[in-house]
Design a protein around this nucleic acid. Structure first.
Lengths: 339, 339
DNA sequence: TCTGGCACTCGACTCCCGAGAGTGCCAGCT
DNA sequence: AGCTGGCACTCTCGGGAGTCGAGTGCCAGA
């Protein structure tokens, strides 16, 4: 374990490196107010910190740079998110006080807010649809052989699925099927609906064959995999790009962010490991070796509903990012709980 | 005007520069099979092309680089999109043959297809909602004072608007209002609906006051500005990033792409000027000085419905991008016309 | 156990020079 | 008249030498 002095020195190195992106030398650390020993002593400590794997020296005559382990120590000793500055927390409050309207728009705006606050890329994963209850189901015929199932969920989200019919269905048939479907689904969750069998719907009980066939087709679609249908909103990629200096790195990161499914899994994996910060390779993705991810779940009506996160360089302002993510997650959850 | 020789030389310089990103010297042009004069002659021609503004010389002992005017000439003399390679046009065909389901998903996938084909960023602007006819309207109560208007359009798109009510409305009131609304709206376009007055809806004619108030609130929302509600799908930003070498440039371009409204305007402005390619500053955006934009409208049921485009560096493969954009626009329009 | 001092290392920066790519111009050829 | 080969010139790029200085490790002494 690190004694108090080494911890202080490590803290100073990390802080300094985050600020300047330059390797930090012992004399520079000595000027830090928390440290009251000479640079020679610091040198000894830094050498030892290096052998223990917290610091790395790019070359002999350079200062030290934190390793992932060094950042990890730094983040752990932060001990959770601090408070956000007054003007920033005011900004968050007014944002959530003013925002209204469609949930998707709000989540997208939230990702923009978070990236504005942190100057890194922000990811907002919407609440999963499976757990929300169905408020309304409607079947709308688009063409003779294609209908659209529109499902309104209690949280204002909408799910829609095209249903390919194997017969020409007229309006009456479609709307009859819609009514039957609605009667069975409203008030249940999507995952319950997914478990429906045709029997539960009463297919075949004194109904037209055509209606039955539409219902069967609709059920088949609704039974489909609802996992990972979460919507993902990503903002501030330009801020993120500006934080790196190699265009190749930026390109690789963008390639990751383009795969929304991968992003969702990434965040949930990190959260699943009980972390709120994943540093470099801890993200589990080689392409993000130079990145860190700060995540937090948000809670709607007492249930974990979704995840938000911030993606930046490993030398990110962890304390600020942690606070921002925590505050935004908190407010977002509260806002969504209002209904 | 340029004589035949100068045109050929300019063509050769542009082609070469697009390929190599290196300033092109006269001796290099001389090796090109279309050119059968000595490098000295080419030098004279290139000097004259420079004074005429088609080429630029970074410094005395360097080769020439095309200016925007040079690219403009090159693009104009291409005379429209050529044919796409066999395997690529096959790729487009199978993509549109296989794709099915939600229109949004399809447009998003289209942007991915286009960026895959071109290796640049691709933008797909969805059909505007105002001109589609309403297939179904539904009012769903979410809470006592918030209802959701869900509008299904004939092309399978969905528009939804939250409606804040100034009274507590029970289910019956909301659904009654919904039925009345539907009766009036179905079959019309959204812009017609937007022009509705309360009188047209028959508000007040033998109906409950509560229903009327819900209807008035709903109409107010639907009257809202529908312009620029087009959805935008952007893919391949990572490819785009890889085509530049300054991270600052990439960041600026991403900042543009994050503003979807701006992107839509950009594409439509270019198209409005009758162009299919905007080079550098021709895009009208200073931040895109190093970019070119290749755009094409797509046509659904005989009507211009939307726009697709490709954003890459000024030294992009114009002929290929033009062909890809043209083919994808064509197929996309055809696919959406099927219904 | 900490500190000041000291010798040492090694990258960053500068300067310089040569190589090479490219140019402009001119005289001569067709 | 127009093209071409030749030539002198320019300027970037890359490598090498030299210097600077930030930073280190280690040691002797308080």
């Amino acid at each position: 374990m690190l004694d108090e002095r080494k911890a202080t020195i490590l803290r100073a190195v990390v802080t300094e490196y985050i600020e300047t992106a330059q390797p930090v030398g012992s004399s520079h650390v000595a000027t830090s107010p928390e440290v009251n020993v000479s640079s020679a002593t610091i040198r000894n400590a830094m050498a030892s910190l290096e052998t223990e794997g917290y610091l790395h020296q790019p070359h002999t005559s350079a200062g030290r740079v934190p390793t992932e382990k060094g950042y990890r120590f730094f983040v752990d000793q932060l001990g959770g998110p601090g408070r956000l500055g007054a003007s920033e927390s005011q900004q968050v409050r007014t944002f959530f006080a003013r925002t209204h309207g469609e949930i998707e728009q709000m989540l997208a705006d939230t990702s923009r807010l978070l990236s504005n606050l942190t100057r890194y890329a922000a990811v907002v994963v919407g609440p999963p649809h499976e757990v929300a209850t169905v408020r309304s189901v409607q079947l709308v015929g688009l063409t003779q052989r294609v209908a659209l199932a529109v499902i309104v969920l209690s949280n204002g989200a909408i799910e829609k699925h095209t249903i390919e019919l194997d017969l020409d269905a007229d309006e009456l048939v479609v709307s009859t099927a819609g009514t039957r479907l609605a009667a069975a689904c409203v008030g249940r969750t999507l995952s319950e609906v997914g478990a429906f069998t045709t029997a539960l719907l009463g297919v075949g009980q004194g109904s037209e064959a055509a209606v039955d066939r539409v219902l069967v087709a609709a059920l088949a679609v609704l039974r489909g995999d609802h996992r990972h249908e979460e919507q993902v909103f990503i903002g501030g990629t330009s801020e993120m790009a500006a934080a790196f200096d190699a265009v190749g790195t930026v390109s690789e990161i963008l390639r990751i962010l383009e795969q929304q499914l991968l992003v969702v899994n990434l965040l949930e994996d990190v959260l699943g490991r009980g972390l709120s910060v994943a540093i470099g390779r801890e993200t589990g993705n080689e392409a993000l070796a130079d990145c860190s991810l700060v995540v937090a779940p948000y809670v709607v009506d007492g249930e974990a509903a979704g995840t938000i996160g911030v993606l930046g360089p490993t030398r990110m302002h962890y304390d600020h990012a942690l606070s921002a993510v925590a505050v935004v997650a908190n407010r977002l959850g509260r806002r969504l709980s209002e209904g």
